[in-house]
Design a protein around this nucleic acid. Structure first.
Lengths: 132, 132
DNA sequence: CTTGACCTTGACCCTGGGGGCAGGGTTTAG
DNA sequence: CTAAACCCTGCCCCCAGGGTCAAGGTCAAG
């Protein structure tokens, strides 16, 4: 199958497929005219990559999952390396959430401070119970 | 003062200062030899930009704060546009936290699913109470 | 005067996951 | 034969700079 067939089957763009290849996740064959050719396996791989990217993994981090598929497993995430990748990503997400929570409290503090400053300096004409 | 003095005073790199200028946040004078010259005001501006970027605002979003400073205010965040920018950023952070929380639960579900799959298919030799 | 140390300038490539476009070759249907 | 639809490679763009480079300025000591 050609690249647009693969892209359509897997629900990604042609550009994305070529990008995955550039990252070493696909190794399509080539016809005499230079066109890339793909197998049904590749559809599964691309769908998996898409799903993993949507979970926030980087293209590089999807590597163990693809290897797991290529090793003949039905699921990409039954291999130990895949479980490790999941746990790593969960830890990243937890760290990010903690960062954002801290950020949020700093922002609300700054906002409250700036609002009260305005109140004190320019009169109580606005803002007390108004913020949405 | 020269660019490295400004950078040192404000706690950023020379590269960052030039980047802020490329984004229209600074408009330094030039000496005859082409060197940029900065004022004490600029130190305040760069410190403010640094603080806002560390809160996750984009360079563009810092614009209202800089204008507020330039308008003669002691604080960059007492202007209405600055308050709006704070609120916008808080909303962004909330959205992002919600996304990540959803992501996290999807990941833990996937992990649990993959683990139980391994248990069922390859024997109960591993993993039950072992994951760190 | 020259050397060396340190400063400045602009310009280039890199990040991640592609989007968009250009310019060309190929294939298929009418 | 031609036009549409597909394919190819390659370049620029995002964001906030980091890294590195070549070239030139400035100041002191020798």
């Amino acid at each position: 199958m050609h690249i647009s067939d693969l892209a359509a089957s897997a629900g990604v763009t042609v550009k994305a497929v070529r990008y995955y290849e550039s990252q070493g996740l696909l190794k399509p064959g080539r016809q005499a005219n230079g066109y890339r050719t793909y197998t049904e396996q590749d559809v599964v791989v691309v769908r998996e990559v898409k799903a993993l990217l949507s979970l926030g993994l980087t293209a590089e981090q999807t590597y163990p999952f693809i290897e797991c598929l290529r090793a003949g497993n039905d699921r990409a995430d039954v291999c130990p390396a895949s479980l490790t990748a999941y746990r790593t990503r969960i830890a990243e997400v937890d760290r990010r959430i903690a960062e954002l929570s801290d950020l949020r409290s700093r922002l609300t503090d700054l906002l409250a401070d700036a609002e009260s400053w305005r109140m004190r300096s320019s009169g109580v004409t606005t803002t007390v119970g108004e913020q949405r």
